[in-house]
Amino acid sequence: MKPAPLDYIRATSVAHAVQVLAENDGDGKVLAGGQSLVPLLAMRLSQPTVLVDLGGLGELSYIRDESGHVEIGAMVRARTVEISSLIADAVPLLPVALRHVGHVTIRNRGTVGGSTAHADPAAELPAVLRALDADVVVTGPSGSRTIGAADFFQGFLTTALAPDEIVTALRVPKSAPGTRVAVQEFARRHGDFAIVAVFAAVELGASGEIAAARIAVAGADQVPVRAAAAEELLAGQDPSPAVLRAAAAEVAGATRPFDDIHGTADYRKKITAVLARRCLEQALPTAERSSAA
């Protein structure tokens, strides 16, 4: 388990990194935190001719409070986001979700840009970006463009990134004050990739009704899934057990899961409904649920 021969270039700027990728015509690979890529190199499942290391790019290591959204540079470590008070206030779903990413040691190195570009359908960050309608900022030879999460994630480990583009930042809309968030993740062991995970951010109205809900699912499709029908069903409703159950069924209905050794498609669909219900129950305060029940 040793990587195949490769060349290595430590990028001095985003433009430099893009230039190297362009010169290598699709055989280059971007190295960010390396937590997914280096094991793939060691197994020789990935054999790029050149690695472009973004590790030296301080310019991609920032968290910025913008109006209406937070911008996170691609090289920000997952752990940094997880413990950022700015993020906790502005996008409370993000730290709750990132705590499920591997272990602290992994999050110390793994970057938000790397996880986004890797696009593992079982990963937490892509699902959160999808739930919150975040934008992915990418830079290529002809400059930067912004891609909505819905369009960015295209399939299993497949994104809208061109071979000579890199993810440079995430723009995550701020959640309304008082937004309630929850994550229900089913993994066989703590820290494993989710078999299924459900992410919810819910805004309550003045009388305790659900004003708006955002729900996404990881692990139940080739891409992170947004449960739009469930969100519509919930909007304006009191969070009664029957409503939550119906919404959970809609969440499961939005998925197109697959078989693997950890669970069949059928199993994934079943537990998606269970996790979605539990996730909504967790997000909504008990008192309001019981008073609504």
């Binding site: 094991p39 040691t105 190195r109």
Partner: peptide
Amino acid sequence: HGVCGACTVVLDGCTARSCCTLAVQ
């Protein structure tokens, strides 16, 4: 491949898996 943790070192003050890190990094 970054699962067992036996190779954990402290890299610039934070733990890191040295098997998932290249020496050049």
